[in-house]
Design a protein around this nucleic acid. Structure first.
Lengths: 215, 215
DNA sequence: TAGATTGTTAATCGATTAACAATC
DNA sequence: TAGATTGTTAATCGATTAACAATC
């Protein structure tokens, strides 16, 4: 099997969100062009993406929804529960706990960490916050392979190093600093400031195309 | 001037973040390969990106840092102050206010909105939260062209419609629903759940490439 | 059957990288 | 001068779209 690109995985995750969260229950089948319309893509792309699942639709009837969801869950490792740690329990970290914990049964925020002693041993949205110094001990006891990093930029790299050393295999980074991680560790960077600055650029009237970028 | 792609704009914003936030002050010049190393890109790509600025480096000396920052600011519309509204003042909305308000002088969170009357007229991280029903009135008084949308999925599209109707020209969407906006309105979608699910996929051991995707 | 939709291959498009003459 | 780095064009790579035979 060819390596499946980052972009395809992102879309598969969104197809599933569409099917599980937003589709009226009475539909038993769905066409590629319907998924495409809802996601603002082409039908070709949807069909091509779904090829990686090894699950076939039926010409003239489309894809059976429950089976499609089942294959998406399987493929995206969402049949097992994936435990995640939130590292840095500031405003953003705590908001992410609340936001993500409620979204997917397969994703469980298993622990939070912070250096601020006022936050330690408190429970935020149902998740216990541990002292940063207990990181290694807690990770030894819980099967956490993934961390969401929302610490200040200055300590982002050193914290990431420590996470990797403690056995973390995937990092979702919200700190506005490009991280360096060893091969074998997955890294996804989410730079909120530059995302907003893109909108600012394409929205500003002056020299740039008055009508639009990626609407 | 060719239309500059979304991706290039995103990288230009991050180049600026690097230069303004993370560079030791004593450096007067910087090479393309240094920027590339810090950002995990190739030097070719950095030079190509910088071409759009119409600002030239000097062979053997690189780019003058203060001038480069000035051109980036100019290009990214960061010489003027850009007022932004946060729509939906739940956990995520309030965290974004705190996070973004402190990051760039050129970005100012000018107002927040929420339907929850308990939140109205309160001030979160220095930003006043208005009743959702006052949206049109407030936007009429303030020069806000951009909105950050963090309302529940069910009301995301209807809220977006209302924002557009009230004159908003750019939306950064955190609601996990693909939005539909008219031509002429910039839309940037940030799906936190699918970002995390990407990490889950590339981190899970079973069938997928044990050694890595985009580390 | 006729018509619509699928799975998949080929064509196109856009973005990244490599190459290299110009130049400091 | 020689060597390093730039700006820019050409080559490569990867992702999206179009096309179409298979099929329900």
């Amino acid at each position: 099997m060819d390596r499946v690109s980052d972009k395809i995985i992102g879309r598969l995750a969104r197809y599933r969100a569409l099917l599980t969260d937003r589709l009226p229950v009475e539909r038993s089948h769905i066409f590629s062009h319907e998924i495409a319309a809802a996601m603002r893509l082409t039908a070709s792309q949807v069909r091509r993406d779904l090829m990686v699942l090894g699950f076939n639709g039926v010409p003239r009837h489309g894809y059976e929804v429950t089976e499609l969801i089942r294959h998406l869950d399987e493929f995206l490792s969402s049949k097992q529960v994936n435990s995640v740690a939130v590292v840095g329990a500031g405003n953003l970290g705590r908001a992410l706990i609340a936001f993500l914990e409620s979204r997917r049964a397969s994703i469980r925020i298993a622990a939070a960490f912070d250096t601020d002693l006022d936050k330690c041993n408190r429970v935020f949205h149902g998740v216990k916050c541990h002292a940063m110094e207990d990181l290694e001990a807690v990770l030894k006891q819980e099967p956490i392979r993934i961390a969401i990093l929302c610490v200040p930029a200055e300590v982002a790299q050193s914290t990431a190093n420590r996470l990797v050393h403690a056995g973390i295999k995937g990092i979702l980074n919200f700190a506005p600093v490009p991280l360096r991680v060893p091969l074998g560790v997955t890294l996804e960077e989410l730079d909120l400031t530059s995302a907003l600055e893109k909108v600012v650029y394409f929205t500003s009237p002056p020299r740039s195309p008055a009508l639009e970028g990626k609407s």
